[in-house]
Simulated scan of single mutants.
Amino acid sequence: MQNESGYFRTAMRRTTTAVKVLLVGLLVMLVSAGTIFAASQGGSQGSTKKGVTIQATPASRTVDQGDTVTYSVALTSANGFSGTVTPTVSGLPASTTAVFAPASVTLGSGKAATVVLTVATSATTPNGKADLTLSTTAGDSQAAGVVVQLFVQAAKKTFSISGNLGQLLTPGSTLPLNPSFANPNNKTLALSNLSVTIAGITRTQAAVAAGLPCTMADYVVTNYSGGYPLTLPVGPSTLSNLKSSSAVWPKITMLDTALNQDGCKGATLQLAYSAVGEGN
């Protein structure tokens, strides 16, 4: 019995020893893992690697197709870096160019410099948002980039419309208008909502001297009644050039009343036009 009891105690001691060894092993593993994690954190927060930091303002810009925008880019020496720094940009949309001024700078330790990034779009730059990544090459290293946004929107299309009546109206008569268009853009425009209004009336000196009235109420304007859109070519054109029938052109009628027989006789009209044009 004693031998058995002694054997039992020995087994228990061995088991206890094994447990202790196991616990010690776990403790070593935990401490090792904690040390690796702390070292990783310390390495990222306390890095002494020389380089350059980048800041760009504003964070986003909006531009019409064909126009340019600028960003201010601050380059700062980090951890004692000194040398030549060349900024770069990537992520430009199609048909877009970018230039830094100056193209490179020389930084001393702890110094900073600012360069200007000019982004030039074209009439064919696609609409939408682009993420531009700005980075630098300094010596043999490249700094982590910062991202700015570029929002490109359709350019506002400009054009002009002009035209007056070819002759004077008489009471009860109607004359058509064949307005002229000027499209200075480099692409055709789709024109819609063409309308004309009477902006002013100039009476003859005799009518003014006699105090004879002539007002917009003495006229009726009939606007263009043809189909849309009207395709406006680059350069000058008229409604007749656009192969539009004179039957659908705008028209102006002078009413035939007792008052306007002399008041509106010989009067000239100033006309104002409006329309909506979109790029094709």
Rank of each mutant, 00 (worst) to 15 (best):
Q2S: 13
E4F: 10
Y7H: 04
T15N: 12
T16Y: 10
T17V: 08
V24P: 00
A33W: 07
G34H: 03
T35R: 00
Q41H: 04
S47K: 07
K50Q: 15
G51E: 06
G51D: 06
A56K: 02
S60L: 09
V69R: 01
S77V: 10
G80E: 09
F81G: 07
P87W: 01
P87V: 06
S104L: 01
S104A: 13
L107S: 06
A112Q: 07
T114K: 13
T118A: 06
S122T: 15
P126T: 02
K129N: 10
L132H: 01
S135H: 01
A138N: 14
A144I: 02
V148L: 06
S160N: 11
S162A: 11
N164K: 12
G172H: 04
L175P: 01
P184L: 09
N185S: 14
T188H: 09
S192I: 04
S192P: 02
Q205K: 12
A206I: 05
A207G: 09
A207N: 10
P213A: 05
T215C: 06
A217Y: 05
D218C: 08
Y228C: 04
L230P: 03
T231L: 10
L232D: 02
V234G: 08
S240V: 08
L242R: 08
P250T: 08
K251A: 12
K251V: 04
M254D: 02
L255P: 00
N260E: 07
D262R: 12
Q270V: 15
G277E: 12
